[in-house]
Protein backbone atom coordinates (compact mmCIF):
# COMPACT_ATOMS: atom_id res chain seq x y z
CA UNK A 1 0.00 0.00 0.00
CA UNK A 2 1.22 3.50 -0.81
CA UNK A 3 1.40 5.83 2.16
CA UNK A 4 -1.05 8.73 1.85
CA UNK A 5 1.60 11.25 2.91
CA UNK A 6 5.31 10.78 3.05
CA UNK A 7 8.39 12.94 3.52
CA UNK A 8 11.85 11.92 2.39
CA UNK A 9 14.88 13.65 3.87
CA UNK A 10 12.79 16.77 4.45
CA UNK A 11 14.95 19.73 5.48
CA UNK A 12 13.80 23.32 5.85
CA UNK A 13 15.95 26.36 6.49
CA UNK A 14 14.53 29.74 7.47
CA UNK A 15 16.18 32.82 5.90
CA UNK A 16 18.82 30.76 4.07
CA UNK A 17 22.00 32.63 3.21
CA UNK A 18 21.46 35.36 5.81
CA UNK A 19 22.91 35.72 9.30
CA UNK A 20 19.48 34.66 10.58
CA UNK A 21 19.67 31.24 8.89
CA UNK A 22 18.13 28.62 11.11
CA UNK A 23 17.38 24.95 10.60
CA UNK A 24 13.69 24.36 11.29
CA UNK A 25 13.52 20.67 10.39
CA UNK A 26 16.30 18.37 9.30
CA UNK A 27 16.39 15.08 7.40
CA UNK A 28 12.89 14.15 8.28
CA UNK A 29 11.57 10.81 7.09
CA UNK A 30 7.95 10.14 7.84
CA UNK A 31 5.01 8.33 6.37
CA UNK A 32 1.37 7.90 7.27
CA UNK A 33 -1.13 5.37 5.98
CA UNK A 34 -4.76 6.04 5.21
CA UNK A 35 -6.87 6.10 8.33
CA UNK A 36 -4.12 6.62 10.89
CA UNK A 37 -4.76 8.86 13.91
CA UNK A 38 -1.50 10.53 14.86
CA UNK A 39 -0.62 12.88 17.72
CA UNK A 40 2.33 15.25 17.39
CA UNK A 41 4.13 16.48 20.50
CA UNK A 42 7.11 18.76 21.01
CA UNK A 43 8.00 22.18 22.33
CA UNK A 44 7.48 25.50 20.59
CA UNK A 45 10.31 25.75 18.08
CA UNK A 46 10.81 21.98 17.86
CA UNK A 47 9.91 22.04 14.16
CA UNK A 48 6.45 20.50 14.37
CA UNK A 49 4.65 23.55 12.91
CA UNK A 50 7.15 23.78 10.05
CA UNK A 51 6.68 20.07 9.43
CA UNK A 52 2.90 20.19 9.12
CA UNK A 53 3.00 23.21 6.80
CA UNK A 54 5.05 21.12 4.38
CA UNK A 55 2.44 18.41 4.14
CA UNK A 56 -0.04 20.63 2.32
CA UNK A 57 2.50 22.58 0.32
CA UNK A 58 2.38 25.90 2.21
CA UNK A 59 6.12 25.64 2.73
CA UNK A 60 8.55 24.34 0.16
CA UNK A 61 11.31 22.01 1.36
CA UNK A 62 14.82 23.40 1.16
CA UNK A 63 15.94 19.81 0.59
CA UNK A 64 14.08 16.52 0.32
CA UNK A 65 10.65 15.60 -0.98
CA UNK A 66 7.05 15.61 0.17
CA UNK A 67 4.82 12.98 -1.43
CA UNK A 68 1.06 12.76 -1.49
CA UNK A 69 -0.27 9.35 -2.51
CA UNK A 70 3.14 8.50 -3.94
CA UNK A 71 3.57 11.66 -6.02
CA UNK A 72 5.86 14.60 -5.37
CA UNK A 73 3.62 17.57 -4.53
CA UNK A 74 6.13 20.01 -6.01
CA UNK A 75 6.42 18.24 -9.38
CA UNK A 76 3.90 20.63 -10.99
CA UNK A 77 2.01 23.77 -10.09
CA UNK A 78 -1.40 22.10 -10.33
CA UNK A 79 -0.26 19.36 -7.96
CA UNK A 80 0.96 21.89 -5.40
CA UNK A 81 -2.30 23.80 -5.52
CA UNK A 82 -4.38 20.62 -5.57
CA UNK A 83 -2.75 19.17 -2.48
CA UNK A 84 -4.12 22.05 -0.37
CA UNK A 85 -7.57 20.51 -0.78
CA UNK A 86 -6.41 16.96 -0.17
CA UNK A 87 -4.44 17.78 2.96
CA UNK A 88 -6.59 20.06 5.10
CA UNK A 89 -4.68 22.18 7.59
CA UNK A 90 -6.38 23.82 10.57
CA UNK A 91 -4.10 26.42 12.12
CA UNK A 92 -3.87 27.44 15.76
CA UNK A 93 -6.73 29.71 16.84
CA UNK A 94 -8.52 29.11 13.51
CA UNK A 95 -11.44 31.29 14.61
CA UNK A 96 -9.32 34.30 13.62
CA UNK A 97 -9.69 33.35 9.95
CA UNK A 98 -13.50 33.68 9.89
CA UNK A 99 -14.64 36.49 7.61
CA UNK A 100 -17.97 35.78 5.93
CA UNK A 101 -21.36 37.21 6.81
CA UNK A 102 -22.82 33.84 7.72
CA UNK A 103 -21.54 30.59 9.14
CA UNK A 104 -22.79 28.84 6.00
CA UNK A 105 -20.81 31.08 3.65
CA UNK A 106 -17.68 30.77 5.72
CA UNK A 107 -17.75 26.98 5.70
CA UNK A 108 -18.44 27.13 1.95
CA UNK A 109 -15.29 29.19 1.25
CA UNK A 110 -13.01 26.16 0.77
CA UNK A 111 -15.44 24.09 -1.34
CA UNK A 112 -16.10 27.20 -3.49
CA UNK A 113 -12.40 27.58 -4.14
CA UNK A 114 -12.50 23.96 -5.33
CA UNK A 115 -14.98 25.08 -7.99
CA UNK A 116 -17.60 22.53 -6.98
CA UNK A 117 -21.25 22.70 -8.03
CA UNK A 118 -23.77 24.51 -5.83
CA UNK A 119 -25.44 21.25 -4.76
CA UNK A 120 -22.13 19.66 -3.92
CA UNK A 121 -21.10 22.71 -1.88
CA UNK A 122 -24.40 22.67 -0.03
CA UNK A 123 -24.08 18.97 0.78
CA UNK A 124 -20.55 19.42 2.04
CA UNK A 125 -21.31 22.47 4.18
CA UNK A 126 -24.16 20.65 5.90
CA UNK A 127 -22.11 17.52 6.39
CA UNK A 128 -19.14 19.45 7.83
CA UNK A 129 -21.36 21.50 10.16
CA UNK A 130 -22.97 18.30 11.39
CA UNK A 131 -19.60 16.64 11.96
CA UNK A 132 -18.48 19.42 14.31
CA UNK A 133 -21.84 19.68 16.02
CA UNK A 134 -22.94 23.01 14.54
CA UNK A 135 -26.72 22.86 14.23
CA UNK A 136 -28.75 23.99 11.18
CA UNK A 137 -30.11 26.95 13.15
CA UNK A 138 -26.63 28.46 13.40
CA UNK A 139 -25.83 28.32 9.68
CA UNK A 140 -27.46 31.64 8.84
CA UNK A 141 -26.02 33.46 11.85
CA UNK A 142 -22.96 35.67 11.69
CA UNK A 143 -19.89 33.72 12.79
CA UNK A 144 -18.92 36.68 14.96
CA UNK A 145 -21.99 36.24 17.18
CA UNK A 146 -20.99 32.73 18.23
CA UNK A 147 -19.19 31.68 21.39
CA UNK A 148 -15.44 31.01 21.33
CA UNK A 149 -15.84 27.24 21.15
CA UNK A 150 -18.49 27.46 18.42
CA UNK A 151 -16.32 29.81 16.33
CA UNK A 152 -13.51 27.33 16.48
CA UNK A 153 -15.77 24.46 15.41
CA UNK A 154 -17.03 26.52 12.46
CA UNK A 155 -13.43 27.19 11.42
CA UNK A 156 -12.63 23.48 11.62
CA UNK A 157 -15.77 22.73 9.58
CA UNK A 158 -14.44 25.12 6.94
CA UNK A 159 -11.51 22.77 6.40
CA UNK A 160 -13.44 19.52 6.83
CA UNK A 161 -15.89 20.70 4.12
CA UNK A 162 -13.13 20.23 1.55
CA UNK A 163 -13.25 16.50 2.43
CA UNK A 164 -9.50 16.23 2.72
CA UNK A 165 -7.90 12.78 2.75
CA UNK A 166 -5.63 14.01 5.50
CA UNK A 167 -6.74 16.44 8.22
CA UNK A 168 -4.07 18.22 10.23
CA UNK A 169 -4.91 20.33 13.28
CA UNK A 170 -2.40 22.56 15.07
CA UNK A 171 -3.35 22.62 18.75
CA UNK A 172 -7.09 22.45 18.19
CA UNK A 173 -7.88 22.89 21.88
CA UNK A 174 -5.52 25.81 22.69
CA UNK A 175 -7.12 28.35 25.00
CA UNK A 176 -10.39 26.44 25.49
CA UNK A 177 -11.75 25.40 28.85
CA UNK A 178 -11.97 21.69 29.74
CA UNK A 179 -15.53 21.33 28.47
CA UNK A 180 -14.71 23.08 25.17
CA UNK A 181 -11.56 21.01 24.70
CA UNK A 182 -13.35 17.75 25.36
CA UNK A 183 -16.02 18.67 22.82
CA UNK A 184 -13.50 19.49 20.08
CA UNK A 185 -11.54 16.30 20.71
CA UNK A 186 -14.75 14.28 20.59
CA UNK A 187 -15.65 15.97 17.27
CA UNK A 188 -12.28 15.09 15.80
CA UNK A 189 -12.46 11.50 17.00
CA UNK A 190 -15.94 11.18 15.60
CA UNK A 191 -14.83 12.68 12.28
CA UNK A 192 -11.98 10.18 12.07
CA UNK A 193 -14.33 7.34 12.84
CA UNK A 194 -16.99 8.37 10.32
CA UNK A 195 -14.79 9.48 7.43
CA UNK A 196 -11.92 7.05 7.87
CA UNK A 197 -9.45 9.73 6.82
CA UNK A 198 -5.97 10.24 8.22
CA UNK A 199 -5.79 12.72 11.11
CA UNK A 200 -2.72 14.41 12.56
CA UNK A 201 -3.01 16.75 15.52
CA UNK A 202 -0.49 18.80 17.42
CA UNK A 203 -0.96 18.99 21.17
CA UNK A 204 0.87 20.06 24.28
CA UNK A 205 -1.19 17.79 26.46
CA UNK A 206 0.36 14.38 27.03
CA UNK A 207 -2.96 13.26 28.47
CA UNK A 208 -4.84 14.11 25.27
CA UNK A 209 -2.13 12.57 23.13
CA UNK A 210 -2.27 9.38 25.16
CA UNK A 211 -6.03 9.24 25.23
CA UNK A 212 -6.96 9.63 21.58
CA UNK A 213 -4.01 8.95 19.26
CA UNK A 214 -2.96 5.55 17.89
CA UNK A 215 0.49 6.77 17.07
CA UNK A 216 2.68 9.59 18.39
CA UNK A 217 5.42 11.65 16.81
CA UNK A 218 7.83 13.44 19.13
CA UNK A 219 9.73 16.46 17.80
CA UNK A 220 12.77 18.07 19.32
CA UNK A 221 15.29 20.52 17.89
CA UNK A 222 14.05 20.08 14.32
CA UNK A 223 14.24 16.28 14.41
CA UNK A 224 11.61 13.59 14.64
CA UNK A 225 13.08 11.90 17.69
CA UNK A 226 10.41 9.30 18.44
CA UNK A 227 7.69 7.68 16.39
CA UNK A 228 5.53 4.90 17.76
CA UNK A 229 2.41 3.89 19.66
CA UNK A 230 1.64 5.77 22.89
CA UNK A 231 2.51 2.54 24.68
CA UNK A 232 5.96 2.45 23.19
CA UNK A 233 6.61 6.17 23.64
CA UNK A 234 5.48 6.56 27.24
CA UNK A 235 7.52 3.51 28.16
CA UNK A 236 10.57 5.73 27.60
CA UNK A 237 10.02 8.44 30.23
CA UNK A 238 13.74 9.20 30.68
CA UNK A 239 14.14 10.13 27.03
CA UNK A 240 11.03 12.30 27.12
CA UNK A 241 12.21 14.07 30.23
CA UNK A 242 15.64 14.60 28.67
CA UNK A 243 13.99 16.77 26.00
CA UNK A 244 11.90 18.51 28.66
CA UNK A 245 8.64 16.81 27.78
CA UNK A 246 6.60 15.17 30.45
CA UNK A 247 4.62 11.99 30.55
CA UNK A 248 0.95 11.81 31.51
CA UNK A 249 0.30 12.34 35.20
CA UNK A 250 -1.12 8.85 35.56
CA UNK A 251 2.01 7.30 34.01
CA UNK A 252 4.03 9.13 36.66
CA UNK A 253 1.83 7.77 39.44
CA UNK A 254 2.26 4.26 37.98
CA UNK A 255 6.05 4.72 37.80
CA UNK A 256 6.11 5.71 41.51
CA UNK A 257 3.99 2.68 42.40
CA UNK A 258 6.35 0.39 40.51
CA UNK A 259 9.34 1.97 42.29
CA UNK A 260 7.63 1.15 45.56
CA UNK A 261 7.30 -2.45 44.38
CA UNK A 262 3.71 -2.69 43.22
CA UNK A 263 3.36 -5.24 40.41
CA UNK A 264 1.53 -3.36 37.64
CA UNK A 265 2.50 -2.82 33.98
CA UNK A 266 4.49 0.33 33.13
CA UNK A 267 2.61 1.20 29.93
CA UNK A 268 -0.39 2.87 31.53
CA UNK A 269 -1.36 6.37 30.53
CA UNK A 270 -5.05 6.88 31.15
CA UNK A 271 -7.17 6.88 34.29
CA UNK A 272 -9.23 3.97 32.94
CA UNK A 273 -6.16 1.82 32.31
CA UNK A 274 -4.76 2.55 35.75
CA UNK A 275 -8.04 1.72 37.40
CA UNK A 276 -8.33 -1.57 35.46
CA UNK A 277 -4.76 -2.57 36.31
CA UNK A 278 -5.17 -1.75 39.98
CA UNK A 279 -8.49 -3.56 40.28
CA UNK A 280 -7.00 -6.61 38.56
CA UNK A 281 -4.19 -6.53 41.07
CA UNK A 282 -6.69 -6.43 43.90
CA UNK A 283 -8.68 -9.36 42.52
CA UNK A 284 -5.47 -11.33 42.05
CA UNK A 285 -4.66 -10.73 45.71
CA UNK A 286 -8.17 -11.72 46.80
CA UNK A 287 -7.94 -14.98 44.86
CA UNK A 288 -4.57 -15.86 46.36
Amino acid sequence: MTPIVKTEGLTHLYSPGTPFERIAVQDLDFQAMKGEFIGIIGHTGSGKSTFIQHLNGLLKPTKGRVLFDGEDIWSSKTKTHGVRFKVGLVFQYPEYQLFEETVYKDIAFGPKNMKLSEEEIDARVREAADLVGIGEELLEKSPFDLSGGQKRRVAIAGVIAMRPDVLILDEPTAGLDPAGSAEILANIKDYHHRMGSTVLFVTHSMEDAARIADRLLVFSGGHLVMDGTPNAIFARPEELEAIDLGIPEITRVVARLREKGLDIPAAIYTVEQAKAALMKLKEGKADA
Binding site: P178, E249, I250, V253, V271, A274
Partner: peptide
Protein backbone atom coordinates in the same frame (compact mmCIF):
# COMPACT_ATOMS: atom_id res chain seq x y z
CA UNK B 1 -19.77 22.85 36.51
CA UNK B 2 -18.03 21.88 33.25
CA UNK B 3 -14.63 21.53 34.88
CA UNK B 4 -12.31 18.60 35.15
CA UNK B 5 -10.21 17.55 38.11
CA UNK B 6 -6.53 16.53 38.05
CA UNK B 7 -6.01 12.97 36.80
CA UNK B 8 -4.66 11.95 40.20
CA UNK B 9 -7.95 12.93 41.81
CA UNK B 10 -9.91 11.25 39.03
CA UNK B 11 -8.10 7.97 39.63
Amino acid sequence: AGLSVPETTQL
